[in-house]
Design a protein around this nucleic acid. Sequence first.
DNA 1: GTATCTGCAAATCCTTTGCAAGTCA
DNA 2: TGACTTGCAAAGGATTTGCAGATAC
Lengths: 133, 133
Amino acid sequence: MTPQRLMIVEAVENSTNHIGADEIYSEVVAKYPNVNVSTVYRTLELLEQLGLVTKTDLGGGRVVYHPVDKGHHHHLVCKECGATIDLDESVLSSLKDSLLRQYQFVADLRHLGIQGVCVNCRQHASQKPAESK
Amino acid sequence: MTPQRLMIVEAVENSTNHIGADEIYSEVVAKYPNVNVSTVYRTLELLEQLGLVTKTDLGGGRVVYHPVDKGHHHHLVCKECGATIDLDESVLSSLKDSLLRQYQFVADLRHLGIQGVCVNCRQHASQKPAESK
DNA sequence: GTATCTGCAAATCCTTTGCAAGTCA
DNA sequence: TGACTTGCAAAGGATTTGCAGATAC
């Protein structure tokens, strides 16, 4: 209902798929110089509660936000270069099913970040010894 | 090689399966009052580099350590009660395979924390509406 | 004896909070 | 008006770092 909120919502909606609080902040500040980070965090929290935005902890202190209406996806996070690769929701649906069956655990995979090494870094890894099997 | 390092290693090894830096710290301080947190962090980093210990980011700022020689497992983390359920490594092996095939991504699932809601909290959830599908 | 490790304190980083002032309907 | 929202600045928690002194081998 306030201009700053609108800009924050806009920033999240405009993001291709996910965006960090800091990025949102810089984007908003660019147009509206005296917004404050706390407003960004407060608004994001609100949007999350309203179910408009999903918050994902990618691990390593990286937290990103994503508009719900753009569909869900998962993230592969490269430990080497930090790249994040989006994964369609369907890829993990069987995992979700088996966790439910075997553990009665309702997994919220929308909040999932899978660590690993991406193609590019694997190729460049000829220089450094491979880390994990 | 130093007493403090030995105690830290011991604390990690004694943990059933995973333990946080803060827990390690308190455990060590109990026996050796003037160790410092920074020593704990420095030692854990060292142990990780040596490949003796695995560091897992469970999300939500929770980071735990686990001795490599005790076998790997994954974690289901309940958003409601915070419980962590251990998952055998085999459960996700097919996931690992398909990520490798489809995305050429080498997933390091040892560092995986899956968010969701556990059995207990689902049962108690009769009070509050279910969150995710 | 020398390189390494430690404790301490201060510094980060990211996020949250208290509060008084400002804004929306 | 009256509740809600903001900015600011300070507080937080977790982890890291610089540095001088202490320790291991």
